[in-house]
Design a binder for these strands. Sequence first.
DNA 1: AAAAATTTTGCAACAAAGTTGCATTTTGGT
DNA 2: ACCAAAATGCAACTTTGTTGCAAAATTTTT
Lengths: 154, 154
Amino acid sequence: MRALPMVYLITIPELLMVTNVKEILKKNQLSITESRRKILQLFYNANDALSHADIEKLTGDDFDRVTIYRTLQTFVEKGIVHTIPTADNSVRYALCKDNCTEGHHHDNHVHFLCDECGKTYCLDHVTIPDIQLPKGFHQKQTDLVISGVCKNCD
Amino acid sequence: MRALPMVYLITIPELLMVTNVKEILKKNQLSITESRRKILQLFYNANDALSHADIEKLTGDDFDRVTIYRTLQTFVEKGIVHTIPTADNSVRYALCKDNCTEGHHHDNHVHFLCDECGKTYCLDHVTIPDIQLPKGFHQKQTDLVISGVCKNCD
DNA sequence: AAAAATTTTGCAACAAAGTTGCATTTTGGT
DNA sequence: ACCAAAATGCAACTTTGTTGCAAAATTTTT
């Protein structure tokens, strides 16, 4: 039996590190509280985006509604999660998988919304092609949201 | 003094036709009411997108809040206006300039949001490039929203 | 042109979503 | 374990959006 290529061994520790919720909070200079730990863990457990309502349901009455709002706001400010613009204008949050720095998101990947099951996918490996804007327009952030039917509902 | 080029004379009647609000309502089999006329006129006067709040301010206390909601809903259903997904999840509406048929929007142009002045532009002539989705994903609607600095704030 | 039928509007009441100030509790550092 | 700073929970409030129904306006019919 052949040895696995080294590339795999290099990528695994990175993944493990990422799912350590406490480390992420520390790295972002946030005090480690129950709400932040639990809510951030929810994002790592879920493979799709979460709305405020989702989090409220998933946490039961552990936390006040206001705390959830403030926690999400903090995460967005720190670049831990980002909001996804949707056609139905319901706010959804998803983990920033690229290295977003504080206050400056660059999650320029495609978001997919399933009309059937309502799931939101971050298609990390589908990149947005360059768009030529008219003269005088300067591009800062780009959001590409595609809706349709996902692989599970296909 | 030279005569003006004919091109100008050709484009003017088209504009006049488009701004005839009554005709548009008739064409869409909607009864002509004061609220529909005035609100639709607002969209033709404004060169950017409008939110519900914008319309409420612009119409003063001519109409009830509920009427504005219902009018906008009707316009969306008929394909007269479309909603623009934004990162801050505030609902904005803009005229459909392509020939959207009832219930089926195909406003596949790019939307631009200015961070400075807050204006929303429909970049009708910037088209969204084709995106290659992973297997099993089927694309129905695509929204591309770019934010940054517009030509006026440049 | 007036009456009947249909549609739309305004009102009231409600539900959901999000914000703010402040006292209490929890966290991080010593 | 103590203290200062930060985060939480509570209450009250604002904004946003929805629903049912009677009154008013619009369209259709005669």
